[in-house]
């Protein structure tokens, strides 16, 4: 990946010099105008609007509530603070599992799968991304039901004596989220692994490093960029997910998106929902910041 970027950059300097010598341009800035109008009117202004909304008086103004009342409630009430903590913790756990599961798969796909098998793996990774989200959740509901396949297997293996209540538990949520998000992790890691110069590993081996040592000292550090990109992406998507939580969590976990959904659906406390939505947006911005830094670093 870094090698590719380097060539792109050196190649980039030549046309730039040419562009100066060539005042003629095929496409003018007017080409941008429709898309900018669309995004300003229906993306940026609405987000500013929610920002303003979050400072209005909510349903439950705390005594002496001022401008920041909704945020005070969100960040100082132990219940809501717990919700924010649970949202982050869940995302961290899901991200870690995705790394543990995704790295070996990405490694196998880049290093050991050639031609047809590689294409098949790519297809199998992308196809589930396009299956309806409700469908995947429903599949887990069937599998994890009290008399579902998973419980039956566990019982026939004598691992458990009574069926476990797997549904509506954090376990089901984590399974469901890993199922949805692991492909993103694998694709991110694989794209970086594919660009690692294998001569570096061979040199390490020749100089006497064992397989494990050369992986730990060479391959893993070089693939950190892909791992980081994937981790940020998975973390961000896990933070914002709510279908999986709603259908598989059954209230066993409370997260920000779930709470927004409930505020909107039942409580109708819109200013407070706006404040929560902004908190979620803030987390997304922080992730985006790190993502951009990773991309910049790769470019250098």
């Amino acid at each position: 990946m870094s090698g590719q970027n380097a060539t792109r950059q050196t190649a980039g300097t030549v046309p730039r010099a040419r562009a100066v010598a060539r005042p003629w341009r095929l496409m003018g800035f007017s080409f941008m105008i429709p898309s900018l109008l669309l995004l300003v009117a229906f993306f940026i202004v609405p987000l500013v609007f929610v920002g303003e909304m979050s400072f209005r008086e909510g349903r439950l103004p705390p005594p002496g509530g001022g401008l920041w009342q909704n945020y005070e409630r969100l960040f100082f009430d132990s219940f809501y603070l717990g919700v924010i903590g649970e949202t982050m913790l869940l995302s961290v756990v899901v991200t870690l599992i995705c790394i543990l599961v995704g790295y070996p798969v990405a490694y196998f796909m880049v290093r050991h799968a050639g031609g047809k098998l590689y294409n098949l793996i790519i297809f199998l990774l992308i196809a589930p991304l396009l299956t309806p989200i409700i469908m995947r959740t429903f599949g887990w509901q069937v599998l994890l039901a009290r008399r579902g396949l998973v419980n039956e297997w566990l019982q026939s293996l004598d691992l458990i004596s009574k069926p476990l209540a797997l549904l509506n538990s954090p376990v089901a949520v984590v399974l469901g989220l890993v199922h949805v998000l692991a492909p993103f992790m694998i694709l991110s890691i694989a794209s970086v692994l594919a660009g690692i110069d294998r001569r570096l590993e061979e040199s390490a081996r020749m100089l006497g490093a064992g397989k494990g040592m050369s992986f730990l000292k060479i391959t893993l550090p070089l693939s950190m960029d892909g791992l980081g990109t994937g981790a940020i992406l998975v973390f961000m998507l896990a933070n914002g997910s709510f279908v999986t939580l709603l259908l598989l969590g059954g209230g066993s976990l409370q997260t920000l998106p779930l709470l927004i959904y409930q505020q909107f659906n039942t409580t109708r406390d819109l200013p407070f929902a706006a404040a929560m939505s902004n908190a979620l947006l803030l987390i997304a911005f922080i992730c985006l910041f790190f993502q951009l830094r990773l991309i910049r670093r790769k470019g250098v």
Binding site: S35, L36, L39, F42, F43, V45, P46, L47, F49, V50, M53, M236, N239, G240, F242, P257, I260, Y261, F264, L270, A273, A274, S277, L280, L281, A284, C287, L288, Q291, L292
Partner: peptide, 21 residues
């Protein structure tokens, strides 16, 4: 980056914002 930014937005945030608006 601006044109691609809706990709990085939690969809529930976008939905809520557009409905208000």
């Amino acid at each position: 980056a601006l044109l691609l930014s809706p990709l990085s937005m939690p969809m529930i945030v976008l939905g809520l914002a557009l409905l208000f608006y």
